[in-house]
Amino acid sequence: MTEAVSLREAYGKTLVELGRENPDIVMLDADLCRSTMTQFFAGEFPERSFDCGIAEQNMIGIAAGLAAAGKIPFASTFAVFVPGRSYDQIRMSIAQPGLNVKLVTTHGGITVGEDGTSHQSVEDLVLITSFPGFTVIVPADAIETVQAVRAAAINCGPFYIRLPRPKLPLVYDRSYRFQLGKAVTLKQGGEATIIAIGVMVTAALEAAANLKRGGIDCRVLNMPTLKPIDKAAIIAATETGAIVTAEEHLEHGGLGSAVARVVARHHPVPIEFVAIKDTYAKSGKPGQLLERYGLTAKDIEQAVRTVLKKKGG
């Protein structure tokens, strides 16, 4: 496996570069600059940095106002507080008018670990994808993070980018070109398709390698843009006759739901969902939690075996 690299740090450094390139980029945070890594930007551009204190709802409103007056605000905190704590502020101040605010959150999912339930964001994707007009990206590694953040900076409208706390192994090399709204085929295969995002992409590749040794050849897709989702790639995947989705989020309303909607409408095939089942997680080490809540390569392999049994002849 390749080295593990911090996605948060990749974000923090990219934001500084963007700040140098474009004086309209401004930064907001809610007393978590040291954790979200917006501290780099604050260090270089103090006059364009607004630490709003522990007041997420107010931060969202200020970001919306900055955007309405022509700035390009990047607002960051933990994924559990934006969108969770500031849902209505996002709804009316950003989503409805379609303002150019970039929400980049860290500590997404349960790999937050020991801080426990209050800090583990397992509903942020269903909340944020519920807003009309939001572009939602869940990068799989640091290289994808850099390009996703750059895409948010040059494309109009509200964006949400969700990053994890732990460092992750690189999925891509420097030649990778992120394309907004496009799935990436990481491995070809004809018997089933695994569609994964974020932390689960590496697990999907591992599962596919293990299954291949057992004679099952899976396609693996990374779906970095969760919304708008790459319908064409999903419809193409139905040709494998079975789909497994994998995400670090509640089963309700995340990647699995989005994929299922496309599949059900265009070409129904059996789907299995690797996700957190209707429960809150607890304190523990990230690896222990992924195991406890069914988010490992083994769980994906099991899901592939299950879905293959349902596959039509």
Partner: peptide, 24 residues
């Protein structure tokens, strides 16, 4: 903060005797 401990990283009123509110 260990897996399966009653003492979560932040308070949980359903797990720890004497804790009144889930906070964090």
């Amino acid at each position: 903060r260990q897996l399966d401990s009653r003492l979560q990283g932040h308070t949980d009123r359903n797990l720890t005797p004497g804790v009144e509110m889930s906070a964090g």
